[in-house]
């Protein structure tokens, strides 16, 4: 892609990817307002860097990488950590569904940010170790060690029924 898109073309792209990016952002951050801000920021950066995107089919993956990198930079900021809510619960609880939903988001909130990102990318986005490493800008070895630590912690919080003890990270 050798030229910047027209505003109409980029708006079309933003509409097409918004929901998917928002869902990932929410799982990463656990807060709807922050998730919306994150997606807007990621799309704005994608717009600014559009000539770097090799073709339109690569654009959603590029936007997701930008989203994950932006979230990572937010996590490192002192002020972001201090202002974050101490507990994360869904706004609505389905009283007829005794599922693990509240426990899931609370458990994700306990994970350090990078571990949370690895869990979301690998078990929600279904990325391989290599793809997750590329998205996070870290080595595959670090993805694996972060995955194992995260799963061990989720196991203690959510139980073996959700995270079996012999759950492997080598499902590439």
């Amino acid at each position: 892609m050798s030229r910047s898109p027209s505003d109409g073309e980029f708006t079309q792209f933003a509409h097409a990817t918004w929901a998917s990016l928002y869902r990932t952002a929410y799982l990463l951050l656990g807060d709807r307002g922050e998730a919306e801000d994150l997606v807007q920021t990621a799309l704005a950066k994608t717009y600014a860097a559009w000539p770097k995107v090799r073709d339109v089919h690569a654009a959603p993956g590029y936007a997701r990488t930008v989203l994950v990198n932006t979230a990572s930079s937010w996590f490192r900021k002192r002020s972001w950590r201090n202002e974050r809510p101490t507990a994360v619960l869904p706004d609505l609880v389905d009283e007829h569904d005794p599922s693990d939903r509240p426990a899931l988001m609370s458990a994700l909130a306990v994970l350090p940010p990078r571990q949370r990102a690895v869990v979301v990318l690998r078990y929600y986005e279904d990325l391989s170790v290599a793809q997750a490493a590329s998205a996070l800008g870290i080595s595959e070895g670090t993805v694996k060690s972060q995955t194992s630590d995260a799963l061990a912690r989720l196991r203690t919080l959510l139980g073996d029924a959700v995270v079996p003890h012999t759950l492997g990270a080598n499902h590439d």
């Binding site: 990932t24 599922s99 693990d100 939903r101 869990v119 929600y124 989720l154 959700v162 995270v163």
Partner: peptide, 10 residues
């Protein structure tokens, strides 16, 4: 199960 919970939440 973990995959399903994440997708259900999203």
């Amino acid at each position: 199960r973990l995959n399903q919970l994440l997708h259900d939440e999203a």
